[in-house]
């Protein structure tokens, strides 16, 4: 089980990083989404894996529970990463509509022009 989770994290990280290094905005956003999945699961897994041990206190006697803290952190991380993705989408949309290209790199020949202005 641990091996599967770790390898999934690794796969998502690799995919995320690869997409992050592409030259257009949309793949970069997808890459960030993949990377945030990977990071969320990674933080979640730092509480160690547990099955049928939800951190909901039982009324009926003693039970063991999984680590609730990483879950709380990941919960807010999921929501925040949505917010950041949304901002990024809006910025890239704006950039595309203003500049008519969704390339993330600045063309060096154009910056030289700006500098000499």
């Amino acid at each position: 089980m641990e091996l599967l989770v770790a390898s999934a994290i690794g796969a998502m990280t690799a995919g995320g990083v690869y997409l992050l290094l592409r030259l257009r905005t949309f793949p970069v956003i997808l890459g960030l989404a993949l990377l945030s999945y990977a990071v969320n699961v990674f933080i979640f897994s730092s509480g160690r894996l547990a099955i049928d041990m939800s951190p909901i206190l039982s009324k009926y006697g003693d039970a063991s529970y999984t680590d609730p803290l990483p879950q709380a952190l990941v919960l807010t991380a999921i929501v925040i990463s949505f917010g950041m993705t949304a901002v990024l989408v809006m910025v890239s949309l704006g950039a595309f509509l203003e500049a008519d290209t969704d390339s993330i790199d600045i063309d060096p020949s154009e910056t030289d022009k700006d500098a000499t202005k």
Binding site: V5, A6, S7, G10, A14, V17
Partner: peptide
Amino acid sequence: AGAGVGGLAFAFM
């Protein structure tokens, strides 16, 4: 990067 993060997670868990 993937191998590093995955390996770290595996070692951690």
